[in-house]
Structures are given as C-alpha cells and as structure tokens.
Simulated assay, not measured.
Amino acid sequence: MKIIQAIKKANAPFVFKGCSSGKHLKNPLVLVFGNRYMLETNSIYEEVKELFTDAHVVFGSTSGEIMDDTVLDGTIVLTAIEFEKSSILVHRSNVGEHNNNDENLGQHLMAQFPKEDLKHLFIISEGSTVNGSALINGLEKHKHSMISLSGGLCGDDDRFERTLVSYNENPKEGEIVAIGFYGSSLEITSANFGGWTPFGPERIITKAQDNILYELDGKPALDLYKNYLGEKAKELPKSALLYPLSVRTSEESEPLVRTILNIDNKENAMILAGDVPIGSKVQLMMSSVDDIASGAYSAAELAMKGRNKNPEIALLISCIGRKLVMDQRTEEEIEEVKSVIGNSTVITGFYSYGEMAPFQGQDQCKLHNQTMTLTLFSE
C-alpha cells in the first residue's frame, strides 16, 4: 500500500506532504475531505484530476478535517492510496433518484457490488437530509455477514445548511458514495465509542415517524427539550449538539446516541440523524473534554483488538458535537487515537453529522452520533 497526502488552503494550490506529486501512483483511491465553501469551487475536481489522472476521486464536505494528529478548519485534505495486492470498486447514487426513500437507495447501492472477495464497504454520505438509519438498513438487507460496513454522514461545520459528496465529479448535494474493498490480503477493522453520560429523567417516545420525534410521555418533544436547554434554546439547532439523546429501543439493546440535526417549530418536532422508534426510552446526555478524549482512546483500542497486522491507514470520523465540546482541545482525541494505533499509521478523516460502524462483537452496522469511529486498513 502506497499512501501520500496533501493539503489545500484557501486561494492556494495543494501542497504535498513529504513528496512533490502523486503522479507515480497507479489508479489510486483519492479521498478529498474539505470545507463546504472550498468544495463548491467549480474547478475543484479538475484540480485534483490534474494531480492524479487515473484516480478514483471521492469528495466529502466536513465539519473539520483530520490529517495525522491535527484538526483543521477551512481547508481541504487529500489522501491518495494505491493498493498493491487488492482492488476497489466505487458506486454512487442520489437521494433524488429514489424518491427520497433512503432504504431503497441503500439496497440499490449494495446490489451494485459483486459479493465475491468483497471485504468491506465504506460509505461517504450526504448528511443534510438523509436518514442514516434507513440507509444502513437498506445496505444491510442483502449484505453477507462476512462483509463489514462503516462510514459517515458528511458535515457543514455547525451551519446545517448543505452537505456535498461526489465521485469523479464536482461535489454536489444528495449524493451517497460507496467504496468496496476487495481482496484476501486486506485486513479491515472498525469500531466506535462515545464518552457521553445520560442525565435527567428517562422518558418514553410516544409519537415519532422514522427520524422525526414528536412526543415524549405524550408531551411535545421540542417543548420539553427547550425547557431543558433554557437560554441555550435560542441557539438551536447548534446548541443541541452539546446535549444529544440516548435512545434505548429495548432493555437488551445497546443505547444509541442521536443528534438533533434540525427543529420544526411549526410541528413542535425534532429531526434526528437516525430513527427513533415509538416506545423507546430516551435521556439527555452530556460530556466533558476528558470523557471525550477517553472515549476516543477506547474506540482505538476496540478497533485494534484482535488485529494481525498494524494498520497502514486509519479513516477517522468523529462527530461535530464532540468538536464543539472539545473546542481548543479538539486535537486531544486524535492524539489519543494515535497513541493506540501507532505513529506509523497514516491518519485522515473528518468531523461529521453521523458515524456508521457496528457495536463491538456485532456484525450489523448501526448509525451513531457523538462517537469517534475508526476504520483501519492494511494489506
């Protein structure tokens, strides 16, 4: 596996790290994560294509870019990977092509990939309107249990205006890109961990539809949530990132963390990143800088557990809510990850509106919020 990285700042060309260009790589996968405004430049795809003429180029907008142990804002980070013993296949689709039925979209994408030798599917999804839970349900419906799945929902800082994704074209809205990794030599592991603590009374979801929450204990959910936030309610939906919801669908199930992506004052409802089934138990959550850093360390330990080889590259997807809590200390969670996976592993990734990974010891992928998610690759 050959890996090179580059960074682009506003009104400047890409600057490569440790080399002068990427033209020596053959058919690389080029992951381009960046600030939404910078990705809206009409020439961005051509600019990357000039650097890598025969590349598979995947773009995704972010709420912060990750390169090595550094967290950046207002930049574009590029990571190009040439696989020496394995291969990739990339497919894309758009929510508008499936009448906004995200589960059907997931099924359609999964059907595009031949199953023989498919080890892993990595998803880079638009994050503004997609129901991540439904998308994953569609992907999982016909996925063999031996095929692992991870990824994330793209971000737009804390604006929640629009997110951009694309494959081999300029980034645009509504896109979901799936990257399939093939080959017996590949070792790919993924894991996630949060670090958030529930507080306050536990309430029952009494009215909801998919990812829209209407009522808790028979009362308007948004009114209750605003009462808890107090003065911070004026800053919604941004302030909701500091107080996500813990959702437990049954006594036996692992609790899922759900971020509030938007609010509907007319319907007195909250729009979440994933499904919130009726009958589920809900609590507010909060966290501290130290808890989030510790959670990142735990996520890295889980991802490394049982591996045969040291990872050559790590794709990190962490939540915008964690970044807001960490503030000036955001890089500490990346440093915690690096202390576990080692200095020789190339690190890239972004801050997101949602993360995709299975719980430890489970095969089926889930949508998470407010977690650090790692996907580790080696050949």
Rank of each mutant, 00 (worst) to 15 (best):
V77N: 00
A208D: 06
N104T: 14
L229C: 08
N94H: 04
C154D: 00
G60M: 02
D102R: 01
E355Y: 06
M38L: 15
M1L: 14
Y167F: 11
F14G: 02
E251N: 15
T259I: 11
K234N: 10
S280E: 13
P255K: 07
S61N: 03
E161H: 11
D327H: 14
A299C: 12
H144G: 13
K9Y: 15
E140D: 03
R307I: 13
G230N: 14
R36H: 01
D290K: 13
E202D: 01
L315M: 14
R36P: 13
K17L: 15
G127F: 07
E312C: 12
Y182A: 14
A300K: 06
G274V: 05
Q5F: 00
T197D: 08
T189L: 00
T375S: 06
E335H: 10
G195W: 12
N27G: 14
K119E: 06
L109W: 04
I4H: 14
A134K: 11
G155M: 02
C319A: 11
K366T: 02
E252W: 05
K115I: 15
M110G: 04
L241K: 08
I176H: 03
S280A: 12
L222E: 10
A10P: 03
D290H: 14
Y243D: 08
G180V: 00
K85W: 07
E202G: 02
A111N: 07
S20Q: 08
D363V: 10
Q364A: 09
F359I: 15
Q283K: 10
R36S: 09
F359S: 15
S294F: 15
M146N: 14
K323M: 14
E82A: 04
I123E: 04
G180D: 02
S239W: 10
E40R: 09
D290R: 03
L78N: 01
V177F: 10
E50Q: 11
A191E: 07
K143A: 12
D117P: 09
Q360W: 03
H142W: 07
P201C: 10
F193T: 01
A233C: 04
T70N: 03
A357D: 00
S185K: 15
L51N: 02
N35I: 03
P237K: 07
Q283E: 00
L39T: 06
G349F: 08
P237W: 01
T197G: 04
K305L: 13
T330E: 03
E187R: 10
E50V: 11
V325S: 03
F83T: 11
I76K: 00
L25F: 08
F59R: 03
I76N: 00
E215P: 00
I313S: 07
N170M: 11
M270I: 00
N94E: 08
E355A: 06
Q5T: 05
I334W: 02
S280M: 05
P114L: 10
S125E: 09
T75W: 04
S63R: 01
P171C: 11
D210P: 02
S150H: 06
E254R: 08
T371V: 09
D54M: 07
N265H: 09
V130A: 14
P277S: 03
I278D: 10
A240R: 08
G127M: 10
K366M: 13
L241N: 09
D73C: 12
I260N: 08
S378I: 03
E46T: 05
M67I: 12
K26C: 15
F122D: 04
F113M: 12
K238N: 05
